[in-house]
Structures are given as structure tokens and as C-alpha cells.
Design a protein around this nucleic acid. Structure first.
Lengths: 290, 290
DNA sequence: ATTGTTTTGAAATTTTTGATACAGCTTTTC
DNA sequence: GAAAAGCTGTATCAAAAATTTCAAAACAAT
């Protein structure tokens, strides 16, 4: 038998908090219900049981068991509570933003998120609009070849970028950072090539070498880096810096990801006429259709 | 027959305003219904017809006629509208991130950033502290083997995670999503293994298959997904959902990255005693020192 | 007053929704 | 490895809610 759960009398803590707190005492289906409810709190619970269960990917009886376990006498009772909570919350202007639970992780997570959000804001504010637009234009030029590369950590971001651009347009690839792997490919790189490099501190020599070689051959270099600028900046045509400090032993790449996704989004919109049929074709191929 | 009333399509003015405007065209009992609704807008309308009618001092049919007259097809339709209006209003403060229209370059970047920030906030708020802590504990258990995997886009995140954890602790690797590449490796997977999977919508069957196979062999599955939960959730021990919608043709993985980095940070702190010398050793090796 | 029109609610009907019993499956425990 | 406990979904049923019907009441205009 599991530990009992306090009935939802007239308590202060919102139901959401209680659910978060008791999360690990739930069964798998109950967790799914809980996740759905918390992700659209409290509106997900205001529909019918059938709708709620279906959205959570569970059966109606499981949904019922979930609310019963929460201490309610039935689904209507549960909904009534949600409505009352909502009304109370809406009437008190800023009663929201309750202090997150104690525990070890939550505060750390919240603090981390706050730092990351600060980074994103600072990053956006320090990007020159003209620079961003210029990069979008460059990456939207279908006659050019685009190569993505990065360091040991940022390499994953380069892959992320490549996996998206590859679908939007052609002539896109990823270059591994190790010199042995790209030396001979450099013969192909020329004036119509664009190298998009990701490089943040503990700047990596091999990535720098790659970009310098490419630049010497006439390629256009786009650099996504930190505010202290990777040495690649010397040979780069465009530089987009992102803030990376976080309350961690590691730097955060969220700002770089933001820029990457924003670029993908902007280029997709710009090339929409050709990107749309292309994306549809890719989808068909993935599904094994002719 | 009285003058027609515009149906409640996608309009700007709230229902309340329309009711006030049309007030003098209502019959006496309709007015009573209108007054009740406006006095406790919109909660008075969220109960049952019977309750609503009784509180307004009219009969159920009259209440029905009232909502029909407002242009709704029935009482459930009416309530649905109220809920949606309420949700939109409640979400506006932060997640104003409606379909932010075109806009060029910089404005688009700012809008994108705002949406991403909203996602991060929502993600953190909906993570159960216990769940997060449990995952940290799991990944800090040095006796276990950790395997990261992901789909065509999220695979990059898995690599990102792997590249960090690899330095903090041992027994960490990355598994390619294609079945041909992992089938035979499954022989090694057992009870002391942990599979951390990244999977967001357009959930990928091969990743699901990998996790199901691993789970069947007794491995513990940790899933980072979107709020709609990948089917992998069925076999996952722990699920960390992140909000992913963005004003783009693509979803945003920023929330997943945030969780990843927060996990890396937390585990690094937790294993600091052993992680520190290990990180220093890695650094020496990179520099070619003995 | 009387007739035609509109409004209204009681009761009957239909539809929807919530709840339960039970059997299969999974996980845990011994 | 077998038995027990627990979890979950299908099928079914009961309850409640929404909707329609219809006749009485209120009202307006002759």
C-alpha cells in the first residue's frame, strides 16, 4: 500500500504543487495524466474525462483513478476544484508565482533557467539586426554550399543546424572538426562556399585551422561564438555572439541554440516557395512512399 | 424573429462585451442570465445548465435559449468558448507568443526569443522536482552505464549530453538511432544500464523500438520529450517534458537543452569529488601532457 | 374582452458523460 | 522461477446533463 494522500480540503497549496510533490508516488498512467494536467494547468482538466484521458494517452478509467487518488470523489468534484482554484487565482492579481518546492534539484533548476533566460535576453539585445539579416540572406542563397562545423561540445549544435538546413535546402553538410577528417575535403571549398562555425571558449585549434584554411580559399565564414570571440572572428565575415555563462561548471549553449533556431526559422520562411515542396518530399521519402 | 446575432467565430471582442452591447435586445429571462454571467464572468457559465439557470432564477430551457441566441450550437459549445477565452487571457502575460507574424530579421529574432523564453519558463514550472532529482541521482550512479540516443533532430541533443557526461564520469556512450546500428549492441544492455532518450513529436519509430528493446532487457529509461509525450513514455521510468512550440515551421529544442544542461550541472556538482580529477585528467590528455 | 404573438417552464426525451466490473498483462516479491 | 500484488484497458452500465416538446402564462394590440 502506498502512503496516503491528503484530501483536497481548503488548503493553501495549489493542486498543481501537490501533484508535483507526489509525482513519484504515481503509477505510469497516473504520471501521464499528471504531466498533461500540469502542462496545460488547469485547462487540460476542464474537458470531459474521455477527452482528458485521450489527450494523456490513457484510458478513461485510469484518468478516473487518477483524480480519485488525488482525493476527489469523482471527476465533477475534481473539475469543480479546478474552477474554484482558477477563480481564486484570477481574482487575486498576482497571487501566482508560488515558491517552488524545497528539494535539491528544483531551486537549482529554476536558478539555472533564470540564468539561461538572462543569457537569451542579453544575446538578442547584442545582435546587430543587420548582421542577423545578412546571415539569413547568405544562408538563403541556394547557389552556395553550406558547411557546418563546431568543437567538441558545439559540434552537436552544428549537427543540429545541419539536420534542419538539410531539409530546407540542398548543398548542406557537416564537417567533423578533426583535421584528418577535413584536410582533403578542402580542395572542394571555394568562393561559393559558406562555412558556419560554432566555437566558444576553450576555443578549439582544429576548428580555427579549418576556418582559416577555408577562408584562405575564398569561402565566406559565419561564426557563432561567445562574447569574447573565438579567434575565428579574424577571418569571419559575420559574427553572432551569444552569452554563455551559467551557474554551473559548464557554459550554456542555449544562446547559440536560440540563434540557430532563429536562423533556421527565418531561412525557412524566406525560402518557403521551394522549401515547402522539398520538406513534403522528404516527409514522403521517410514514410517510404514513392 | 429578432435581428440576427453574429456567431462567435474568431473575434477580438470578448463575449462579455458582446453581451453588454446586445443587452437591450434580450428577453427578461435572458437578461437575468446575462446579468448573472457578467457578474461572475466567466465562471458562472462553467457549471451545468441546471445550476446556471437556477442561480439566474430562470429555467434550464431559458438558459439554453440564451446561449443559442448568442450564436452557440449548445451549452457545451458555449462553455468551450468561455474556457478558451479564459485560457487565452491567463496565458497572455508571458506566453503572448501567438502566431507572431512575418516580421523581418531582428523583430523576428526578438519574437522568437520571447517565445523560447516562455517555453523555458513553462518547462521549469512543469517539471516535478522529485522527477528531476531522481534523474540526477540515477545519472550520478557510477556503477551504471549511460547511453544517450535521439531522433533525427534531437539526436544532436543526445550527442551534446553525451559529450559532457563523458567527461564527468565513465561508462557513457551515444547510440545511433538506426536499428541496424544498435541491434547487436543490445546484447550488452541489461539491468544496470540507463538509456536517456530524446524524442519530440513526429516521434521516431526506431528510437521507440530501441527503448522498448532496452526496457525489455531491464534497462531503466529516462525520456526527455514534449508535453504530449513520446510513446516511449510507456516504457520510461522517468519523463521530463519540455515545451517546444515556437513561431516557426519548426519546434524549438531550447527547453530540452535547458534540461540537459541543468542535468549536466547537477550531476557534475554531485560527483564533484571524482569528476574534478577526471576533468583535469581529460584536460591534460587533450593538451598532450603525460 | 378577445385574439394572436411571444415568452416561459414542466416534463419527456435523447445524448453525453462518468463510473464500475472484470480480465489480461506487468511488475514485484518470495 | 512461481505466486502474489498491482496496474491498465475493454466492455458495460448507470447517472446526469443537455435538448426538445408542448402547453400554459404573459403581454400587446385591436
Amino acid at each position: 500500500m502506498r502512503n496516503d494522500i491528503v484530501p483536497p480540503s481548503a488548503e493553501q497549496p495549489s493542486l498543481a504543487e501537490r501533484i508535483r510533490h507526489d509525482m513519484d508516488s504515481f503509477t505510469p498512467s497516473e504520471k501521464r495524466a499528471a504531466h498533461l494536467l500540469l502542462s496545460h494547468y488547469p485547462f487540460a482538466g476542464l474537458d470531459t474525462v474521455a477527452e482528458f484521458a485521450s489527450r494523456a494517452g490513457i484510458s478513461a478509467p485510469s484518468a478516473l483513478r487518477f483524480v480519485t487518488r488525488l482525493g476527489f470523489s469523482g471527476f465533477p468534484d475534481f473539475q469543480k476544484h479546478l474552477r474554484e482554484e482558477l477563480e481564486a487565482q484570477l481574482l487575486s492579481p498576482l497571487a501566482k508565482s508560488g515558491p517552488v518546492e524545497p528539494g535539491q534539484g528544483a531551486p537549482a533548476l529554476a536558478a539555472f533557467a533564470q540564468a539561461v533566460i538572462g543569457n537569451l535576453t542579453a544575446t538578442v539585445e547584442n545582435i546587430a539586426p543587420a548582421e542577423f539579416d545578412a546571415v539569413v540572406a547568405l544562408l538563403s542563397d541556394q547557389r552556395r554550399n553550406i558547411h557546418f562545423t563546431g568543437g567538441r561540445f558545439t559540434g552537436a549544435l552544428a549537427r543540429y543546424a545541419e539536420s534542419h538546413f538539410r531539409i530546407v535546402r540542398s548543398h548542406v553538410d557537416f564537417i567533423e572538426g578533426q583535421p584528418a577528417l577535413w584536410r582533403d575535403r578542402m580542395i572542394e571549398i571555394g568562393r561559393k562556399d559558406v562555412v558556419v562555425a560554432f566555437d566558444i571558449r576553450r576555443y578549439q585549434e582544429d576548428v580555427t585551422a579549418l576556418c582559416e584554411t577555408a577562408a584562405r580559399q575564398g569561402a565566406t565564414i559565419v561564426l557563432l561564438t561567445d562574447p569574447w570571440l573565438s579567434p575565428i572572428a579574424r577571418v569571419a565575415r559575420h559574427v553572432l555572439p551569444a552569452h554563455i555563462t551559467a551557474p554551473s561548471n559548464w557554459d550554456s549553449s542555449a544562446g547559440l541554440l536560440l540563434l540557430t533556431e532563429a536562423l533556421v526559422s527565418a531561412v525557412t520562411k524566406r525560402l518557403w516557395e521551394t522549401a515547402k515542396p522539398r520538406m513534403e518530399a522528404v516527409e514522403r521519402l521517410r514514410n517510404g512512399e514513392p
